[in-house]
C-alpha cells in the first residue's frame, strides 16, 4: 500500500494489508492527529487497508502562537 504523509511531503510503501489502527501505530502517528483518507472516504481505525490501496494521512493540527 502507498501511504501519503501530507505536509511532510513523504510517501511510504508498505507490504501487506493491515488495519488502520496498526498502520498508524507502525508509523508512530496518534489517531487523534490525522484524518485517514482513501479516495473520497474517511476510514475508522478498524478498517482494513489493502495491499493495492492508496491512503492519505492528513494532519488536523493547525495554528501557531509563541
Amino acid at each position: 500500500m502507498k501511504v501519503i504523509l501530507r505536509n511532510q511531503g513523504k510517501e511510504v510503501e508498505l507490504a501487506g494489508r493491515r488495519r488502520v489502527r496498526e498502520l498508524l501505530s507502525e508509523l508512530g502517528v496518534l489517531p487523534e492527529t490525522v484524518l485517514v483518507i482513501r479516495g473520497r472516504e474517511l476510514l475508522t481505525v478498524d478498517e482494513v487497508v489493502r495491499e493495492d490501496d492508496v491512503v492519505e494521512l492528513r494532519p488536523v493540527i493547525s495554528g501557531g502562537r509563541r
Binding site: N7, I61, S62, G63, G64
Partner: peptide, 18 residues
C-alpha cells in the same frame, strides 16, 4: 488550505497540542 503557515513551525502552541 491543509498546508501550515510557514511561521507556525516550531510554535509553542503546537508543542502544547502534541
Amino acid at each position: 488550505i491543509v498546508e501550515e503557515c510557514p511561521f507556525a513551525r516550531g510554535a509553542t502552541s503546537l508543542t502544547h497540542k502534541e
